[in-house]
Design a protein around this nucleic acid. Structure first.
Lengths: 338, 338
DNA sequence: CATCGCGTTTACAGCGCTGTACATTAACCG
DNA sequence: CGGTTAATGTACAGCGCTGTAAACGCGATG
């Protein structure tokens, strides 16, 4: 059963291909009678336009690529959902690419993979830095997310990580905590996110007139809840005393919760915990996690707006947009009573 | 900066377009010297093949669509990851569609949306039933997931829900539970999954010689953790006594955990809880959830195998594949001591 | 030395659609 | 009523690539 083509419809209706095309596209200047005739021919044959051919002819694909480290990480899947919905609203479809934080896969995103396949790319890099990306200067319109890279020429959307960490830490300070740990820094973490969050944490302590104690900055081996457990266990074992933890990540916070409960500490009474990203996970732990909440919808909207402008031909210098964040208050570090 | 085309490379290298094409595709019969010359021309111009044009010429898109209700639901995001990785391994790229369980969006998946854009579709329907799908008989190769629909002519991959529910319930029975609730049935849930799971639950009770008590089959208003909380609260309020809960869903199980803990019941001592889907969430509650674990990787592999056969031209009757499942043992309904 | 055969390269049609330029008809106006 | 404008419709090139068929060496063969 060969596919029905435009010309088949045209022949059946006794008109030119272009007229059929005009009907398909609801082009206004088609006589009602003809439109009717063409429409029946379309229905009779069950014609569906071949999108690939349309793309080749128009040069527009109506598709954007979204490249992220892991599509099943709650933060990224929640963000993708927003981006997918916003893109649909604007008439784009989304091709999701998973890089698994692999440098080769990341590079591929900016090179040949998308050639002529998508109109633009939204990319959350992990391993590629500012210079790597600047060098690959892709022909494709591009918007970056996250803190790993921010070349001057490329558009970029992020939250103010320093301010967010400052806010989260202040919240703990306001509730009377004085020995607040940071979970965690890592070897080989070049994303910049951690550094900015650490900076905000430190700034809050300084504001409050507290000393910066290096032993309160914990170290983890990777970005898993298990690594968070291990880091807290190690800290407790070496006798570290702390009454609050600011985590760079909800998974770390979950690990902290587990390790603290296992050690007989109660949360938030003995130790208050603040997570990061306000993912689905934060709602389902017990106690539920207070978590820094990036405005994911705003990230999606802003990224698509910038991308659409690039697709529309904007070629100026990179715009760097900071979108809002808040602190989602839950049991692990509850809101203060008034 | 116009895109570089095949013909531009050909002119620079002083050869025909086809030769350049052959070099790009690593066609063996190209003289080394020429290949070298063409390669430098490619590098010099930074040529990248236009995938859209390639598709039009070959008729193959190398892309498959994956249509699911919600891309940020942990079960679906985990499944997508497997499908995306397996698809990549087989040389396909994945276009993810979110239907949000909207009948219109589901219908669109099977109709014009993918025309000539993907080689095949993997579709997890929610609202469309067997007949709806059978009627739309798409030209596109199609594999269905889930229990909502299983037209005879269409390929289909699922786990044995009855057996899985039977297994989960047996586990509770083996650990001595005798009053086991089912969380939950719902009005308007036509997916069939719930019914099959309920059936397995009932079968286990019958096997054990226990009566089927209708009051132990709880009702929820929707598929959220909050609805699960409400259902358990209502049951406790009306004085229902139970020592185990089989949930059709991890979110319900999380709701159950919350409601039980709030009511001062301890899990698993007073009430043991079994979840379903073994999502990320199950690992991070406390206690962690024992959960029915569909073999997601097998679902992905099997679905892609069937789809590839359809793409390859198989036009026979629908194949219905049952893949494995297990019971992921965790604290909410722990493994029995030997 | 003409012929064959193989490896290599080319020319060109065509994938299905849209944009452009042009032809036709209808409508309108002074 | 001739002439102008606007509304409709058509023909066809071309988007960038690949498949096919045919042409082109060139050493080996008889």
């Amino acid at each position: 059963m060969a596919r029905v083509r435009l010309i088949d419809v045209a022949e059946l209706a006794g008109v030119s291909m272009k007229t059929v095309s005009n009907v398909v596209h609801n082009y206004p200047h088609v006589a009602p009678a003809l439109r009717q005739k063409v429409q029946s021919a379309i229905n009779e044959l069950g014609y569906r336009p071949n999108l690939t051919a349309r793309r080749l002819a128009t040069g527009k694909t109506g598709m954007i690529a979204l490249a992220m480290p892991e599509i099943d990480h709650p933060y990224f899947s929640e963000l993708s959902r927003h981006i997918a919905e916003e893109a649909t609203r604007r008439g784009y479809r989304v091709l999701i690419e998973q890089t698994l934080s692999d440098p080769v896969a990341e590079r591929a995103v900016l090179r040949d993979r998308e050639a002529g396949l998508v109109d633009g790319v939204i990319f959350h890099p992990v391993r590629m830095g500012t210079l790597d990306i600047a060098k690959l200067a892709p022909g494709t319109p591009l918007v970056l997310l996250g803190e790993a890279a921010m070349p001057v020429m490329t558009d970029h959307v992020m939250i103010d990580n320093v301010a967010a960490a400052l806010g989260g830490t202040r919240h703990l300070l306001n509730s009377g905590r004085r020995r607040i740990a940071f979970l965690a820094v890592m070897d080989g973490d070049i994303t910049g996110s951690t550094n900015q969050r650490l900076l905000g944490y430190q700034q809050a302590l300084i504001e409050a007139g507290l000393p910066l104690r290096p032993d309160l900055v914990l170290t983890a081996r990777d970005f898993t809840a298990e690594a968070g457990v291990a880091a807290i266990e190690a800290a407790l074992e070496r006798g570290l005393h702390f009454d609050g933890v600011v985590c760079r990540d909800d998974k770390f916070a979950i690990g902290a919760l587990k390790a603290l409960q296992a050690a007989g500490k109660s949360v938030p009474e003995d130790v208050a915990v603040v997570g990061w990203d306000d993912t689905l996970l934060a709602r389902y732990t017990s106690p539920a996690l207070t978590s820094v909440a990036p405005d994911k919808l705003a990230i999606a909207t802003e990224a698509l707006t910038l991308l659409e402008e690039r697709i529309g031909g904007y070629e100026g210098v990179g715009r760097h947009r900071i979108v809002g964040h808040s602190l989602a208050m839950r049991g692990s570090a509850p809101r203060l009573r008034e």
